[in-house]
Each structure stands twice: as structure tokens, then as C-alpha cells.
């Protein structure tokens, strides 16, 4: 913080900055702060029915303390969901970011042909909504339609079910990698292009090959950007919802509580239990807070350490 203020020759002008910040602050209050507060309020309450539970007066909201949290944490299905998402997220993060880094380094190595074409093609899935991506791959997973199955059959693998309980997670991981690699590649590639070329000359004169330069010079320079994309990706994968939700119509292997967020959705809108949905969503938020705080520290140090 001291750093951000150091040498700030920025203007101090009465009400103007507050005026310019007013829309953002108002929207923040209405659509982020108020909903969080409301969730916290709901999570401590529950509906109680008296008598036969008929008529308006028999339905009252009461304060139940941390009861909803106890129920949420005690639910085995909730933790099973976390376990599935943990496996899913680990695979997605490792493969997607690994591929993104390899592609970015290869694009930057100046030795490849058709680099522009590859860059655009790999970034293209970013323009495809998650629902549509899942839908396209979902069709490609269907045995009656898919060229994948035709290829597998040609190699002697008959009856591979890509939507069975044991394989559906990998099918989902594939959709996430397909959709996310290009964006992360572009982030890393943009950073690489910003490094002055003569930076590498010293290493070249010392006889370092392209691979050595990539591993010993480029990767260390990229480290902050890699950490940043990782933290962003962690936040996104923990919240996985669209992909499993879209696969549900074509696969019996995806339950309505496959991921923790799907459970919140089901509790809130299918079973109509807003109170446990509120408690569960706050537990999810608490679990996501660790990578999030890490992110806060990074953003501050990295981007604003040298702001004038």
C-alpha cells in the first residue's frame, strides 16, 4: 500500500473521484454486498410449519443459528461433490495450463511455421459459450453420431462409453481444456511478446539452445503471469456448473448434485430450500477464499507496485 502511494503525483480534487466511482460503488452495494448479506441472513433461518402446515399463518420463519451449516457440512453428497470437483479441477488445471504454457512458448520461439493460423485456431474456442462447447462435445461423445467412436472402433476399441459414470468426468475435463487453453495461452503469449528480444542474446552468446532459453529465461519471467492465470483458473473450475448441467440431458452419469454449485441450485430452485442453499453457498465461498486471498496479494503487489 505504501508502494502504491509512493510518489503519487496524482491529483487531489474534492468530490470528482467519488462522483466517478459512484456508479461502481452503487452497483457493488446492490448486486454484490447486499446479496452476500442477504445470503448470510437466510443461512441462519429456516421455515417452521405449525399445525398441519396449511394456510398462511402456519408458515413462519425462525432463527436457527448455525443449524443449516451443520446440515450442509454433514451432508455426504456435498463432500462427494467436492471430491469430484477436486479431481476435475486438478486435471483441468494441470493439463490446460500446461498446454497453454507449451503453446505460448512454441509460438514465441520464432521457429514455427503457420504460427498465426495456430494461434487463432487455438484461441477460437474462447468465442464458443460453455453451453455450446459442452453441447458440441456431447454430440461427439454419442456413439450414434461421433467420429470419435468410429475412430476408436477402427483401432479395435468397441463399446467405449464416454458418458458412463467412470468416464464422464474425463469427458468434462476435455470440454474445459478445449474451452480454456486458448485464453490462457494468449495471456502468457502476450506477456512473452512484451519481453525485449535482446534479453535472450546474452543467453544465446553463452551457447544456450531454444529449449534452455525457454526453461531458464522465459519461464521465470512468466512466473507471475502463470501464478495469476492459475489462480483465475482455480476460481473458475471450483465454480463448475454449466458443463455438468448441460451434459445431464444426455448422460445419466451426471447427478443433480454432481458439483457443489449444482447442489446449491437444486436446493434453491428444485427442492425450494433457500435456507440450506444459502448456508451451502457460503461454505463454498469460504472454501474458495484461500486461493482468492492469494490472488488479492498478487494483484496488489504485481500490478500496482510501480504505479506512479
Amino acid at each position: 500500500m505504501a508502494k502504491a502511494n509512493r510518489g503519487a503525483r496524482v491529483h487531489s480534487a474534492g468530490a470528482t473521484p467519488y462522483l466517478y466511482l459512484a456508479p461502481a460503488v452503487a452497483l457493488f452495494t446492490l448486486f454484490i454486498a447486499a446479496p452476500i448479506g442477504y445470503t448470510a441472513y437466510l443461512s441462519l433461518r429456516r421455515v417452521q410449519f405449525s399445525g398441519l402446515g396449511l394456510g398462511k399463518k402456519s408458515r413462519t420463519e425462525i432463527f436457527v443459528g448455525l443449524d443449516n451449516y451443520r446440515t450442509a457440512v454433514a451432508d455426504g453428497e456435498f463432500w462427494a461433490g467436492w471430491l469430484r470437483v477436486l479431481g476435475y479441477a486438478t486435471l483441468v488445471l494441470a493439463l490446460m495450463l500446461g498446454l497453454a504454457l507449451v503453446f505460448a512458448l512454441l509460438l514465441d520461439s520464432a521457429r514455427v511455421r503457420l504460427a498465426r493460423f495456430s494461434r487463432i485456431a487455438i484461441f477460437l474456442p474462447y468465442a464458443v459459450p460453455g453451453v455450446v462447447a459442452t453441447l458440441l462435445w456431447g454430440f461427439l461423445y454419442l456413439p450414434s453420431l461421433s467420429p470419435i467412436h468410429a475412430t476408436l472402433r477402427a483401432f479395435g476399441f468397441d463399446n467405449v462409453d464416454l458418458l458412463s459414470p467412470s468416464t464422464v468426468m474425463f469427458s468434462m475435463v476435455n470440454v474445459a481444456i478445449w474451452g480454456g487453453t486458448g485464453f490462457n495461452m494468449l495471456v502468457l503469449y502476450t506477456q512473452l511478446r512484451a519481453i525485449p528480444r535482446d534479453y535472450y542474446e546474452a543467453a544465446r552468446i553463452d551457447g544456450a539452445g531454444e529449449l534452455a532459453i525457454a526453461l531458464r529465461v522465459k519461464v521465470p519471467i512468466l512466473a507471475p503471469a502463470i501464478v495469476l492465470t492459475t489462480v483465475f483458473s482455480i476460481i473458475a473450475t471450483i465454480q463448475v456448473f454449466t458443463e455438468p448441467m448441460t451434459l445431464r440431458p444426455i448422460s445419466n452419469a451426471v447427478s443433480s448434485t454432481w458439483s457443489p454449485l449444482m447442489k446449491v441450485y437444486r436446493d434453491a430452485f428444485v427442492t425450494g430450500d433457500l435456507y440450506s442453499a444459502a448456508a451451502t453457498s457460503l461454505v463454498i465461498a469460504a472454501i474458495s477464499v484461500v486461493p482468492s486471498l492469494l490472488f488479492m496479494r498478487l494483484v496488489r503487489r504485481q500490478a500496482f507496485g510501480e504505479e506512479r
Partner: peptide, 30 residues
Amino acid sequence: LAKFRFFGRNMIFNVLIGGILVPAVVLAVP
């Protein structure tokens, strides 16, 4: 935030930017 110096600048920025970290579903239902 970038070009003015005023009371609460860092706090407002940190609070606003903290919004990135709130899982979408925690917000969407309420």
C-alpha cells in the same frame, strides 16, 4: 482510482476488486 488521490482510494479499490473472488452462485441466488 488511477489519476486522483483521495481518502479511501485503496480501500475502495480493494473492496471492488474483491468482487472477483465471490463465487457466482453465492450471488446469483440472492
